[in-house]
Design a binder for these strands. Structure first.
Lengths: 351, 351
DNA sequence: GTGAAAGCGCTAACAC
DNA sequence: GTGTTAGCGCTTTCAC
C-alpha cells in the first residue's frame, strides 16, 4: 500500500455524496436524507452527527439525483422573447427575487421568434429540465406562441397585459391605463391623439385598444397608428413624420423609449414639446423623469408583476387554491411633456 | 382486462422514458441512447425505428438522469449582483445567446450583496445544480465576492473590467477608455475633469483609475471623485452640487444614466451643457444618442462581452487550450455634450 | 426512530 | 453494431 500514489483516487475532485456523510456520521443513508429533507424525525444525537459530517465534508445534495428520484424540482423556468429590454428585465428581476426567497432557482429560455422551430426548440429545451413550473412572459408574439406550445399538465403562469382565463395569470391593466392617458390628453383640448405603437403581441395590444376606446368614446377622429420597432431610434423617424403631418398636437407612444425617440424627431423638425405637440409614453422608465421635458406616462410596475406571477406559480405548484389572477392598473404620471393644445394647429413646416 | 378502467395508468401524465421508446422501436435501451447522443453507430433501420418512436411518443430525455449518470450537464449558471440594469442585462443577453447556440441553457443566481451569508447562499444554490460551468459578472462587490467563494475545480469565466490572471476572463478595457475620454476632455482646454463614479466593485474601478491616470499624466489637478448610487436620480443632486462648485467645466461620469442625472442637475442650476460644462458618460446606453444634448461616451459592448465570455467557458468545459482571455477597448463616441472649455470658468451662482 | 432494499431514467463498460 | 449488466446519488417504501 505504501507504494500507491497517495490520494490518487481518494483526493480526486469527486464531491462528497450522501453515502460519505452517512459513513462519517455512523448512520445509514436514509437517515441523512431524513435530516436533509426533514421528512421524518431523527434523534438529536444522530442529527448532530449528520450535521457535523455535512459541514466537515462540505456536502451539497445533488439536485439532479433529487429531481430524478422525487420527480420534483426546485427550478422554475422563465420563457420569454427577450431578456434585456426594460420591461422584460424588470419582470425577470421580480420573478427571480420572489423565486429566490421561496427557495427556487430560475432558468431562462429565450424564444427567438414566433416561428414554429424557434418556439419548439425553446419549449423542448425547457421541458427537458425537470421543472417545478414555468413563467411565460406573454409580452410579444414569441411569448404567446410559446405558451400555446406548452403542455397543460405542468404548473404555468402567464404574465401579460391581456386577460386569458385558461391559465393562472398576473397582469397590468394597460388597456385601462391607455384609455385614461388618452382621455387626459383629450381633456387638455387636443382634438385627437395620434399613436405610435411598439410591435404588438397579437393583432392589437391593450395600449392600442385603450387608446382607440378613449377616442371612440369621445367621438374623436381615430388616426391610423404608426408602427415603431423596439429600437428607440425608430421613433425619431416617426417623430419627424408626425411633425410633417397636419393636425398633430398630441402623440401617445407605446413606451417611454419610443416616446423619447419621437420627441427627438419632433425637435429635429423644429417642434417644441409640449408647446406645439404633447407627447406621452408608457411604462415610467427610470430615465423618463430626467428627460427634458420630463415625460408624462403610466407607471408599469414590472418587478411587482414578476413577483406576483411567481407567487401565483407557487400556488399552482403546491396546489393551493387561489384566484389564479393578480392584476394592477398602471398609475398615470403627469409630468412636463404634455400640456394644453396650442390655439391653432401648427402648419407643416417642411418644403 | 376488459374490466380495467381504460388507460388508468397508461395515459397517466408520466412522460415517456427511454424504455418506452426502446420497447416501441423494438430495440434495447442503450441503442436508443446511442441514437440520442450519437455516441456510436446505429444501423439505419433501427435508427429510423427509434426516431419514429421518439416522435410518436413525444419523448424528451430527462436532463436530470443524464446529468446524474454522465456527470456532465448542459446548464451554465450566471452568478451576478444584478440582472436588470443596462450593462448587466445586456451581458446576460450575450451569454444566453451564445449558450443557446451551443446547446446550453442558462440558470441565473443573484448574489444580493457582498455579505458573507448572501454570497454563501447564492454559491450553494448554484453548486447544488450539476453544472457545466459558471460565468461570474464581476461588475460589483457582490460578484467579486462570489467568484472568490467558488471552488477552483469547476469551469469558470470572469467577466469584468479588471484583469485577473487566475481565471479565464473576458473584459472591456475601461481603464484605457476612461483615460482616452479624460484626455479628450483636457484637449478641449479644460484645466481638469471632475468625476462622478458609480459604486465600485473594489477599492477603485478601471474608469476611475483611467481618469486619474490621464489627469496625473497631464499634470492636472485631481479633484476628489463624487459618489453616485446606481439610481440615475442620484446624479441630479451631484449635478446641482457641481454647479455650485467653482472651476467645474468638465465632468466624467461612471455611466451614461448617471451622466443624464448630472446633466439634469446642472440644468436645474442654470448651467448649460456643453457651453458652461462638458459632461461625458460611459457605456453608450441606447438612449444616449437621443438625449439633448446627445451624450459623449465610450461604447461598451456588453452583449459581446457576454458572448465572448460564454465562448471562453465552452473552451474551459471542453478542455480546449486557449488564451483564456478576450479583451476589447471601448470606443470613444464624441457627441454633443462635450465641447471646448468656456473662456473663463463660470462663477458660482447660488446664494 | 432506524436501516435494508428498491429503483428513478439514463449512460458507460463490456461482452458478443 | 447490439444487447446485457452495472450503477450515478438520491428518496421512498417497508420491515423492525
Amino acid at each position: 500500500m505504501g507504494d500507491e500514489a497517495p490520494g490518487r483516487w481518494q483526493n480526486a475532485a469527486r464531491p462528497a455524496t450522501i453515502g460519505d456523510v452517512a459513513a462519517l456520521a455512523g448512520v445509514s443513508v436514509p437517515t441523512v436524507s431524513r435530516v436533509l429533507t426533514g421528512s421524518a424525525r431523527v434523534s438529536p444525537g444522530k442529527r448532530e452527527a449528520v450535521e457535523g459530517a455535512i459541514a466537515s465534508l462540505n456536502y451539497r445534495p445533488s439536485a439532479a439525483a433529487r429531481a430524478l428520484v422525487s420527480r420534483r424540482s426546485q427550478v422554475v423556468a422563465i420563457l420569454t422573447g427577450d431578456t434585456s429590454r426594460y420591461g422584460y428585465a424588470e419582470t425577470i428581476r421580480g420573478i427571480e427575487e420572489a423565486a429566490r426567497s421561496t427557495g427556487y432557482t430560475v432558468m431562462i429560455a429565450v424564444v427567438e421568434s414566433a416561428r414554429e422551430d424557434d418556439v419548439r426548440q425553446a419549449v423542448q429545451a425547457t421541458l427537458s429540465h425537470s421543472l417545478a413550473g414555468i413563467v411565460v412572459l406573454k409580452f410579444d408574439a414569441a411569448g404567446v406562441a410559446a405558451l400555446d406550445a406548452l403542455p397543460a399538465d405542468i404548473p404555468t403562469v402567464a404574465l401579460s397585459g391581456v386577460r386569458d382565463v385558461a391559465r393562472a395569470q398576473a397582469l397590468l391593466d394597460e388597456t385601462r391605463a391607455a384609455d385614461e392617458l388618452t382621455t387626459h390628453l383629450l381633456s387638455l383640448g387636443h382634438r385627437t391623439v395620434h399613436h405610435v405603437r411598439v410591435p404588438p403581441s397579437r393583432r392589437e395590444d391593450g395600449r392600442t385598444t385603450g387608446w382607440r376606446r378613449a377616442l371612440r368614446r369621445a367621438g374623436a377622429e381615430i388616426p391610423s397608428p404608426l408602427d415603431a420597432t423596439w429600437d428607440p431610434a425608430s421613433g425619431v423617424v416617426l417623430g419627424e413624420r408626425l411633425a410633417d403631418t397636419t393636425g398633430v398636437t398630441a402623440v401617445f407612444c407605446g413606451n417611454d423609449e419610443i416616446a423619447m425617440g419621437v420627441m427627438r424627431g419632433l425637435s429635429n423638425a423644429g417642434r417644441r414639446v409640449p408647446d406645439d405637440v404633447s407627447v406621452a409614453g408608457f411604462d415610467d422608465h427610470p430615465l423618463s423623469s430626467l428627460w427634458s421635458p420630463a415625460l408624462t406616462t403610466a407607471r408599469q410596475n414590472f418587478a411587482e408583476l414578476g413577483r406576483r406571477g411567481m407567487m401565483l406559480l407557487t400556488d399552482e405548484i403546491t396546489g393551493v387554491v387561489s384566484r389564479r389572477l393578480w392584476s394592477e392598473r398602471p398609475a398615470l404620471i403627469i409630468r412636463e411633456s404634455t400640456g394644453v393644445a396650442p390655439r391653432e394647429a401648427p402648419q407643416t413646416q417642411s418644403s
